[in-house]
Amino acid sequence: MPLPPTDETSHFPGLARVAALLADPGRAAMLWALMDGSARPAGELTMIAGLSPSAASAHLARLAEGGLLKPEVRGRHRYYRIATAEVAAAIEALMNVAHAAAPAQPATRPARTVPVEMRHARTCYDHMAGEVAVRVFDLLVEGGWLVRNDDDLEVTEQGVARLSNWGVDVKALHARRRRFACTCLDWSERRPHLGGALGAALLERFTLNGWVERASRPRVLRITPLGQHEFDTFVTS
Rank of each mutant, 00 (worst) to 15 (best):
V114D: 04
H99P: 00
L31D: 01
L68H: 00
E44W: 08
P103L: 08
G75A: 06
L31H: 03
S38T: 09
A56K: 03
T113W: 12
R81Q: 10
V116Q: 12
M118W: 02
A28S: 14
A100N: 12
A100W: 11
G66V: 02
P71Y: 09
D36H: 05
A42R: 13
Y80F: 15
A102Y: 10
L60R: 02
L60V: 05
V73L: 11
L15H: 12
L68A: 02
A33H: 07
E65C: 09
A55W: 02
L22C: 14
G14I: 08
T84L: 10
A101L: 13
F12M: 12
R74I: 07
A101W: 08
P71A: 08
A88K: 01
E72M: 04
P106A: 05
F12I: 00
V18F: 05
A23L: 14
L15S: 12
R40C: 06
D24C: 05
R109E: 15
M95S: 03
Y80S: 05
A98W: 09
V87M: 03
L22A: 11
N96I: 09
Y80A: 02
V97Q: 13
T84P: 02
T84C: 10
L69Y: 04
R74G: 03
E86Q: 15
V18Q: 09
W32E: 12
R109P: 00
M95R: 13
E44K: 14
R109I: 12
I82P: 03
L22I: 11
L94A: 11
E72Q: 04
A19I: 05
S57P: 00
R40Y: 00
E72N: 03
G75P: 04
A56R: 02
R109Y: 11
S38L: 01
A83R: 13
R81E: 06
R81F: 01
P53L: 09
I91Y: 02
R119S: 08
L45E: 03
L45A: 06
